[in-house]
Simulated assay, not measured.
Amino acid sequence: MKIAITGGTGFVGQALTKAFLKNNHEVFILSRKNLQTPEKGLHYVQWLTSGSKPEDSLTDIDVFINLAGESLNSGRWTADRKKRIIDSRVEATKEVIRILAQLETKPSVLINASAVGYYGISREKEFTEADQEHGEDFLAKTVVTWEQEALAAEKLGIRTVLTRFGIILDSQEGALPKMVLPYKLLAGGTVGSGKQWLSWVHIDDVVGLIQHAITNPSIKGPINTVAPRPVKMKEFGQTIAQVLNKPHWLPAPSFALKALLGEMSILVLEGQKVLPQKAKDSDYVFAYNKLEDALTDILK
């Protein structure tokens, strides 16, 4: 297959690219920079720059994956940064739709990144893709806006999948290295109340679920890209300590994190219990459905 990826040099994009090339697919990474590569099957295409026409290099694309957007962890959520978080996603997705409209032969599917933040925060509810009500916090509103832009691809006759990512676990990227560091320094402990839910997923299952969505034409709309066994933050920390054989004793109180991170503290102090119902219904087999197994693979 010929697969186009925006945000292909990022965390998830790199993992996908590696898997696609291993399976002998051709990968076209859209980048603002004029990059070159000697690697067989990998191509860079300029976009979002003056005069660039990426559609000219994307003929007969089978799959389009949109992962572009400023990181939520890139700094304190000032008014300016929140605007950039939203605008970067909207701008990129509008350009994806423009490109798709220009292509004479449309891809069979658009996979658009999203997040479980759609559901808002709760300590009591369980959420599946059947839940259509969204939260009212900044993250939820950002996701709603992002998804609405992506769904314009349906009007072009393109099956559209919204991968609602949970907390993605990886040894080098994402939130896990920052969460593990205190334990390595013998200062790990419960973050906030410890009662907030954490819907996690191993990076291998992110890749696996996206590949699953590509090859299963019955999958469309949102798909919760999370493991089937979410845990509360206290259990998450205790499992890190167990796998690393380190103590779990020094708590990080909510008030201190709010003072340090401001509104961005919602990423660690609040959460939601999200279940991958569509993955289950379509017979996806998780490589890692238990947190201990996922952390053992990553940290040892």
Rank of each mutant, 00 (worst) to 15 (best):
K2Q: 11
I3D: 01
G10L: 05
F11N: 03
F11K: 02
F11S: 01
F11T: 01
V12G: 01
G13V: 08
T17F: 06
T17D: 03
T17Y: 01
K18P: 03
A19P: 00
K22P: 02
N23E: 14
F28M: 00
F28I: 00
S31G: 08
G41A: 03
V45W: 08
Q46M: 12
Q46L: 09
S50N: 14
K53Y: 12
E55I: 02
E55G: 07
D56Q: 15
D56E: 15
S57Y: 14
S57N: 15
T59G: 15
T59R: 15
D60H: 14
D60Y: 13
I61T: 04
I61L: 03
I61M: 06
F64C: 06
G69P: 00
E70R: 10
E70G: 04
W77M: 05
T78S: 14
K82R: 13
R84Q: 13
I86L: 15
I86P: 06
D87Y: 13
S88Y: 07
S88P: 10
K94P: 04
R98V: 14
L100N: 04
A101Q: 13
K106P: 05
S114P: 11
S114V: 08
G117H: 03
S122R: 08
T128C: 04
E129A: 03
D131S: 13
Q132I: 15
H134I: 06
V144Y: 13
T145H: 13
E147Q: 05
E147T: 03
Q148D: 13
A150S: 11
A150Q: 05
A150Y: 02
A152T: 13
A153K: 08
L156N: 10
V161C: 05
T163V: 15
R164K: 07
I167W: 11
K178A: 14
P182N: 04
P182R: 08
Y183G: 07
Y183F: 15
K184A: 09
K184V: 06
K184Q: 14
G188A: 08
V191T: 12
G192K: 01
Q196Y: 02
W197G: 01
S199H: 01
D204Q: 12
V206C: 10
H212P: 00
T215G: 11
T215Q: 15
K220T: 12
G221M: 06
P222N: 00
A227Q: 00
P228T: 00
R229I: 12
M233G: 02
M233I: 03
K234N: 11
E235G: 00
F236K: 03
G237R: 10
G237T: 10
I240C: 05
Q242D: 11
V243W: 00
P253V: 08
L260Q: 13
L261M: 14
L261F: 14
I266C: 12
L267A: 05
L267C: 02
V268Q: 08
V268D: 01
E270R: 02
E270F: 08
K273D: 04
L275R: 09
L275W: 09
Q277C: 07
A279F: 01
A279N: 05
K280P: 00
D281K: 09
S282R: 02
D283W: 07
F286A: 01
F286P: 00
L291S: 00
E292D: 11
D293V: 09
D293T: 09
D293W: 03
D297L: 07
I298A: 09
